[in-house]
Lab assay of single mutants.
Amino acid sequence: MGFKLLSKLLVYLTASIMAIASPLAFSVDSSGEYPTVSEIPVGEVRLYQIADGVWSHIATQSFDGAVYPSNGLIVRDGDELLLIDTAWGAKNTAALLAEIEKQIGLPVTRAVSTHFHDDRVGGVDVLRAAGVATYASPSTRRLAEVEGNEIPTHSLEGLSSSGDAVRFGPVELFYPGAAHSTDNLIVYVPSASVLYGGCAIYELSRTSAGNVADADLAEWPTSIERIQQHYPEAQFVIPGHGLPGGLDLLKHTTNVVKAHTNRSVVE
């Protein structure tokens, strides 16, 4: 069995187990497998329904001669939608809004960016022009300005110390501490036991640490421990890039980060 097929099978099995364990909360999309990078042309966006009122959005972007996937989250909030992270750029984010209108038909009224990198804030200006209120932590807003990236308009308070959590509509926002970046936030959907790890969490097929220019490698494993301790009931975990899975993604990420750190020390 090929690795790609095995990865998709694991996603399907995880979703099936969740649907059985929580039949009222989960209505997993039966329309197909989780979209992969090879299936999404740059400039297009796919939506994948995880649970009743919960979707991931998947886009792709060219970077350094390669094409990478990027995940975000959409959560229903009454007759409105909360968006977590842009679709990595203005063109993708405009396509995301169009796809949401086509498939869901509810307005996106608020959006949260989970850290300051372009795959999370690139497209904020498109959201703002569409009347979406954009939010991020003060740290993310400051770092985005320093980096020359787009800056969300509103500040999220109460997320300055490791372990801080605040309720934001249908989700809980959690600051686990520094990891992929010093400002990275985690998003949890309690009604569906869905954990969105953003770039602080890796997919299972990833074996290298990737972009760690703004990471705190020493603190990252401790931050992941905080996530595990705060959300032990999480059933569906979405990484910032690639295929979702279960809580095993947290341990896998820790292993990859520690291996990278150990290699760096040896070198």
Rank of each mutant, 00 (worst) to 15 (best):
residue 160 S to K: 10
residue 28 V to S: 07
residue 177 G to P: 00
residue 123 G to D: 01
residue 212 V to C: 06
residue 105 G to Y: 15
residue 54 V to T: 06
residue 214 D to R: 11
residue 240 G to M: 02
residue 159 L to W: 05
residue 67 V to H: 15
residue 251 K to N: 11
residue 105 G to Q: 11
residue 69 P to V: 06
residue 18 M to S: 07
residue 193 S to G: 11
residue 97 L to C: 05
residue 2 G to C: 14
residue 49 Q to N: 02
residue 35 P to N: 14
residue 59 A to I: 14
residue 235 Q to D: 05
residue 105 G to K: 15
residue 264 S to K: 04
residue 234 A to V: 05
residue 91 K to Y: 12
residue 30 S to D: 02
residue 138 P to E: 15
residue 80 E to M: 05
residue 162 S to V: 04
residue 97 L to W: 03
residue 126 V to R: 08
residue 173 L to R: 00
residue 65 G to C: 04
residue 172 E to L: 11
residue 175 Y to V: 12
residue 125 D to H: 15
residue 172 E to A: 14
residue 51 A to K: 03
residue 109 T to W: 06
residue 47 L to K: 02
residue 215 A to Y: 05
residue 202 Y to H: 08
residue 265 V to W: 08
residue 244 P to C: 10
residue 152 P to V: 10
residue 27 S to N: 02
residue 136 A to R: 01
residue 111 A to Y: 04
residue 22 S to M: 10
residue 136 A to G: 09
residue 65 G to K: 11
residue 241 H to C: 01
residue 254 T to E: 11
residue 222 T to F: 09
residue 120 R to C: 09
residue 20 I to R: 10
residue 266 V to L: 06
residue 191 S to W: 05
residue 32 G to Y: 15
residue 179 A to T: 02
residue 176 P to N: 01
residue 74 I to T: 13
residue 129 A to Y: 15
residue 240 G to D: 01
residue 165 A to I: 12
residue 173 L to P: 02
residue 182 T to N: 04
residue 190 P to H: 00
residue 52 D to G: 07
residue 142 R to P: 04
residue 224 I to Y: 01
residue 192 A to D: 06
residue 82 L to C: 09
residue 257 V to W: 12
residue 80 E to T: 12
residue 141 R to Y: 15
residue 60 T to N: 03
residue 121 V to D: 01
residue 250 L to F: 05
residue 17 I to Y: 09
residue 120 R to I: 02
residue 174 F to E: 05
residue 226 R to K: 12
residue 4 K to H: 02
residue 50 I to M: 11
residue 35 P to F: 03
residue 51 A to C: 05
residue 10 L to M: 13
residue 150 E to Y: 15
residue 73 L to A: 07
residue 244 P to R: 11
residue 165 A to E: 10
residue 110 R to H: 14
residue 257 V to P: 02
residue 177 G to A: 00
residue 258 K to G: 08
residue 193 S to F: 03
residue 252 H to V: 07
residue 174 F to D: 00
residue 214 D to G: 07
residue 202 Y to L: 09
residue 142 R to H: 04
residue 222 T to R: 09
residue 88 W to Y: 14
residue 258 K to L: 14
residue 257 V to N: 12
residue 67 V to M: 10
residue 3 F to Y: 05
residue 13 L to D: 14
residue 59 A to R: 12
residue 103 Q to A: 08
residue 256 V to N: 10
residue 137 S to R: 06
residue 151 I to E: 11
residue 159 L to V: 07
residue 228 Q to M: 15
residue 38 S to L: 11
residue 156 L to P: 03
residue 61 Q to N: 11
residue 248 D to H: 08
residue 89 G to A: 12
residue 99 E to T: 03
residue 88 W to A: 12
residue 67 V to L: 12
residue 33 E to M: 12
residue 103 Q to R: 10
residue 77 D to M: 03
residue 217 L to N: 12
residue 142 R to C: 15
residue 3 F to Q: 05
residue 216 D to S: 10
residue 119 D to M: 00
residue 112 V to G: 02
residue 139 S to H: 08
residue 181 S to M: 00
residue 177 G to E: 00
residue 180 H to V: 00
residue 200 A to K: 00
residue 189 V to H: 14
residue 94 A to T: 05
residue 95 A to H: 15
residue 146 V to H: 08
residue 44 E to L: 12
residue 43 G to S: 11
residue 250 L to Q: 03
residue 5 L to Y: 05
residue 126 V to M: 04
residue 140 T to W: 01
residue 37 V to D: 08
residue 46 R to Q: 11
residue 96 L to C: 07
